[in-house]
Simulated scan of single mutants.
Amino acid sequence: MLIQNEEPSIAVLIPCYNEEVTIGKVVRDFRKALPKADIYVYDNNSTDRTAEIACQAGAQVRREPRQGKGNVIRAMFEDIDADVYVMTDGDDTYPAEAASHMVEKVLEGYDMVIGDRLSSTYFQENKRPFHNFGNRTVRGVINSLFSANVTDVMTGYRAFSYSFVKTYPVLSKGFEVETEMTIHSLDNNIRLYELPVQYRDRPDGSVSKLNTFGDGFKVLSTIFRLIREYKPLPFFGGLGLLVGIIGFVLTGSVVFDFFRTGQVQRFPTLIGAVMLIVIGLLCIVLGFIQDTLAKNSRRRFIMDTNYVTRDYRMQKR
């Protein structure tokens, strides 16, 4: 919480890789929308004039040598201190006019504000059908698993509080980082707000760096990994139950043959079936153990967030 009458500090964070066509306009638009904000462009090994144009437009340009959007976000979150953070892409697909409303929501107490593209013009503007299918699929899976109702899981337009930025562990290296953010927030019951924003497709001459199938596979892999980490009991318990049922069915067929013939005719099947039952039970036990560890991890996260928030408030006094 800010001291009354104190002007909040705002940082606009723009990860960039070869965005010379659009980055100048993006910087100028956000300078107009948030005139008191500091604008940071993180150049991720661009081979064009992205850094030069961003600097001319008035942004503070920094370089991140580790390739990948996740690596850039990790560097931004580590380097920059502000009361409110606005993160956008350098491709001019998100409206800067919505930034002030997003900042207001963070100052009201939300930890992450999601710029929701899918409720507005995304499906009309985006010309890549597999991206549309991927967004719907990822959204459905995550909402089902976390009993949530998030509309846009993968948007790159977000605003954050200081405590979120300084406690969020960025593990992903690439474009899957937005999905990781959403799952992390839902699992830790972080205060979220979705703000519908107008989406526009890239202008002519601007090329997307997102590989539909390669990065789509990374997103799905990230979801699989995060479900295993954040929802271990349903993951391992469901797997154990499935393996155990298969083992019981095979065991039952051998027992049925025994009662019918008086002999155990399929010893390899019986041995394999018993092993499947044991493996299934072990998976279920592992699920309970991992679930306890996950709960302890959430408890530590809450404590760390409280410490960060307390220390930051003391610094602001």
Rank of each mutant, 00 (worst) to 15 (best):
M1Q: 13
M1D: 13
S9M: 08
L13I: 07
T22H: 02
T22R: 01
I23C: 05
K25M: 08
V26F: 01
V27D: 00
R28P: 03
L34E: 02
P35K: 08
A37G: 04
D38C: 10
Y40S: 05
Y42S: 10
D43M: 00
D43N: 10
T47M: 14
D48E: 10
A51S: 12
I53V: 13
I53P: 00
A59K: 01
A59P: 09
V61K: 01
R63A: 04
R74H: 14
A75L: 11
I80Y: 06
V84F: 06
Y85R: 04
V86N: 03
V86Y: 03
T88L: 03
T88H: 03
D89G: 13
G90I: 02
D92C: 08
Y94M: 09
P95M: 11
A96L: 02
E97P: 01
A99F: 03
A99W: 01
M102C: 08
V103T: 12
E104R: 13
E108H: 09
M112L: 14
S119Q: 11
R128N: 06
P129A: 11
P129V: 05
H131C: 01
N135Y: 02
R136M: 15
R136I: 10
F146I: 03
S147P: 03
A148Q: 06
N149K: 11
N149T: 10
D152N: 04
T155G: 08
R158N: 12
S161M: 10
F164R: 00
V165A: 13
K166S: 06
Y168L: 14
E176K: 08
T179P: 15
T182V: 13
S185P: 04
D187M: 07
N188L: 07
L192R: 07
L192S: 07
Y193L: 09
P203S: 11
D204M: 14
S206Y: 10
S208H: 08
K209H: 14
N211Y: 06
G214Y: 08
G216T: 02
G216V: 01
K218C: 02
L220D: 03
T222R: 12
Y230T: 03
P232Q: 05
P232K: 02
F235D: 00
G240W: 00
G247W: 00
F248P: 04
F248N: 11
V249M: 14
L250M: 15
L250E: 12
T251P: 05
F258C: 07
F258W: 09
F259D: 10
T261Q: 07
V278W: 13
C283E: 09
F288Q: 13
L293K: 14
S297V: 08
R298C: 06
R299G: 01
R300H: 12
I302F: 12
N306C: 09
T309W: 04
T309H: 09
R313E: 12
Q315A: 14
R317Q: 14
